[in-house]
């Protein structure tokens, strides 16, 4: 009986890192977008926060794209 601990370990590590990274990025994106609304309410601009938010969402979209690529390939 051969148990592939290396594969199990990498599944665990990859799942952990990618999940936390994606959820973190996405949350940063959401927080960035809500900054825009509060900034607009005070008459300020929040260009940095908003462009940062879109960068976060773009990375998440890229991850989803890579996921679809993995399913199809």
């Amino acid at each position: 009986m051969h148990i592939d601990w290396a594969a199990l370990g990498s599944v665990f590590g990859v799942s952990l890192v990618i999940t936390v990274a994606l959820v973190g990025l996405f949350t940063l994106g959401i927080v960035g977008l809500t900054k825009r609304e509060s900034a607009a309410a005070q008459g300020n601009s929040a260009a940095l926060a908003v462009s940062g938010a879109y960068a976060c969402f773009a990375l998440c979209a890229a991850a989803v794209g890579y996921g679809i690529f993995l399913i199809v390939a």
């Binding site: 592939d4 594969a7 990498s10 599944v11 990859v14 799942s15 994606l22 993995l70």
Partner: peptide
Amino acid sequence: SAATAILASSHIGF
């Protein structure tokens, strides 16, 4: 987490 774990496991082969 579910989507990531499923894709990682089927891709890595465990």
